[in-house]
Amino acid sequence: MNRTSRLERGGTPPLSHAPSGEETSSIGARMRSRLEAYGFLSPAVLLVTLFFFIPVIIIFILILSDLKSANFGTLQWWLPVNWSLENYAKIFGNKFFPKILGNTFFYVAVTLTLFIFSSALLIAVLTTHINRRAGFFFRVLWLLPRLTPSVIYIMMWQRMASRAPHGILNQLLVPLGISTGGDLIQAAPWLFVIIANGMIGASFGMVIFTSAIEAIPKDFMMASKVDGASTWQTIRHVILPSIKWPILFVITYQTLSLLTSFEQIMLLTDGGPGLYKTEVWALTAYHRALSNYFGNNQWGYGSAWAVILVIIGVAAASIYMRVFKFDELVQEPKIDLL
């Protein structure tokens, strides 16, 4: 009695089962488990299809059409007859095209270099080399700009930079003779666009670099100190090479995110002052497609701007991967035995 029950539990297949019967039942079971899997996947698939794939297809048709508020309902934009590369001719022929392109590169490069990379790395390195609690406190401070809603955050900057005697910055700068008391954002729009965005962006790199630095085995730091390195030499020769991968990630990710972000600029300067002074690519796409003069939203034209931006982003990402030798970073180490 005991023995039989043990055998059954042991899982040895009883011989009486015909192999064919077993096969069909296992196919049935497999079908069922597959259906279950698709069942669980279907909401996600539906969402991705509805809100990503279909819009992408529509966008690729839109960029070939001249759909705008003015002809909405009359233009049959989905018919190939109404497709052309007109939008691209308009973009490259636009006399502000070089200005906008230059603005975009300037904005991304300067914000990335000064804040998202350098400041983030500096904060991460400094706060991991001081008292742990103090380090934590300073990192939390740097997260505040990111935690503040954009509109409030930008309004704070506008108040700080406003005319004397209201703006706090003017109260400091006028007595020093640096400012004449006018609105500082009007006087130096790029400075404020870059600082306001950079202070938000810095926290991203800071968090990633901090965790990467904390993850470096303490033995490396000790070994480096004993080998005769100063703190700066340890940072340069041990810490930085150890966080090459997070650096690549932060730079790539933040380049793409800077290229496509525009809401802070829109709230702060709206591309001004004057004509296209701080207008970047993403903001142009937004202005053309969704916020045009007299309410004439040029959806097709705006989409064409946006699609070029995507291409620029992909190109930038692949250049970074080359420069940082992405292949080597993900390669398996070649261990051979003695």
């Binding site: 085995p217 033995d219 490396f220 000790m222 070994a223 480096s224 100190k225 004993v226 080998d227 005769g228 390195a229 100063s230 020769h237 041990v238 090479p241 150890s242 090459k244």
Partner: peptide, 29 residues
């Protein structure tokens, strides 16, 4: 500071810098 003590140290984990070759590790000091 450790760098001014003129000491050499060997660790249990070896603590060799992974991004440097054996030559670079040895000549690091």
């Amino acid at each position: 500071a450790p760098k001014d003590r003129n000491i050499g140290m060997v660790f249990q984990s070896y603590a060799l810098y992974p991004h440097m070759t054996a030559f670079q590790n040895i000549s690091y000091p």
